[in-house]
């Protein structure tokens, strides 16, 4: 990933963080806290992954004595397990669900439920849309709080970058090209070839993307070599200039010696 896009997304995160802080200050947000979560950094299409999300502070803001937990996922053939703990941390029960959506796990203070752990397993779905930057993602899990009167509050949403072997190798080629281009100081030709490579990648044309990325990289490297060569030439020219100046100075000095010569 290029530094530019990194900067881009980090700026985005900063904006999001500010928004969240503002939201927290203004409206009483869902106070149910997401505790430890365990989500893969990225996942290969077709592979089996598991996701764990803990929820705490279950009854504050809105102060509900009882509500229902619902969830959804894009994982295929998922199995959901909702485990309940009491205040001492002891497991006091569990419920299991199948299907990409579940609902109806009752969370009630009267049941002594103090903490919940949602465990999810499933198969990574195939990619619907490839994007290079940001990396294409799928939703691994979304958890919602459903109050007794209806409606819903989103509690957690986990998205995971996913890939196929092909897409990943094209992405590596793109990454390599991007860093070569950046090192070469973003030469025009290489940059536009790179854009073509990204287009190919995003339309799922990975062979093409790889080839174009490779070409962009070559162009960038050539440009940089040319740059280095130019720099060398410039340095050479500079050195020649210095030599010329010194020689000229010497000749001038000599000629001055001559013109100082009373008999010259």
């Amino acid at each position: 990933m290029t530094t530019t896009s990194w900067n881009h997304s980090s700026r985005l995160y900063a904006v999001l963080a500010v928004c969240l802080l503002l939201a927290a200050a203004v409206a009483p947000a869902a106070a149910v806290s997401v505790g430890e979560t365990d989500v893969p950094d990225s996942a290969a299409v077709g592979s089996e992954v598991s996701v764990t999300i803990q929820l705490t502070e279950l009854y504050r803001e809105p102060s509900l004595e009882e509500w229902e937990l619902a969830g959804s996922t894009e994982l295929e053939n998922p199995t959901w397990t909702v485990v309940f703990f009491d205040q001492t941390g002891s497991k006091i029960g569990q419920e299991s669900f199948g299907g990409q959506e579940f609902s109806g796990a009752t969370v009630a203070a009267s049941d002594d439920i103090d903490q919940i752990e949602v465990q999810l397993r499933g198969t990574v779905p195939s990619v619907t849309e490839y994007t290079y930057d940001p990396h294409q993602r799928f939703t691994a899990a979304t958890l919602e709080q459903v109050p007794p009167g209806g409606g819903s509050n989103e509690l957690a949403s986990e998205e995971v970058p996913y890939f196929t072997e092909d897409s990943q190798s094209a992405r590596s080629a793109l990454d390599a090209a991007a860093s070569a281009i950046e090192n070469a100081g973003n030469p025009n030709e290489a940059s536009s070839t790179f854009d073509l490579a990204v287009n190919a990648y995003e339309s799922g044309n990975f062979d093409n993307a790889r080839q174009l990325a490779q070409e962009a990289q070559n162009q960038a490297e050539r440009a940089q070599q040319q740059d280095n060569r130019n720099q060398l030439i410039l340095m050479g020219v500079g050195a020649l200039l210095v030599v010329g100046l010194v020689a000229g100075g010497f000749l001038y000095w000599r000629s001055q010696q001559d013109s100082n010569d009373r008999l010259g």
Partner: peptide, 9 residues
């Protein structure tokens, strides 16, 4: 005497 000159005149 002209020291350092390149000529005799």
């Amino acid at each position: 005497p002209v020291r350092g000159s390149g000529f005799v005149a």
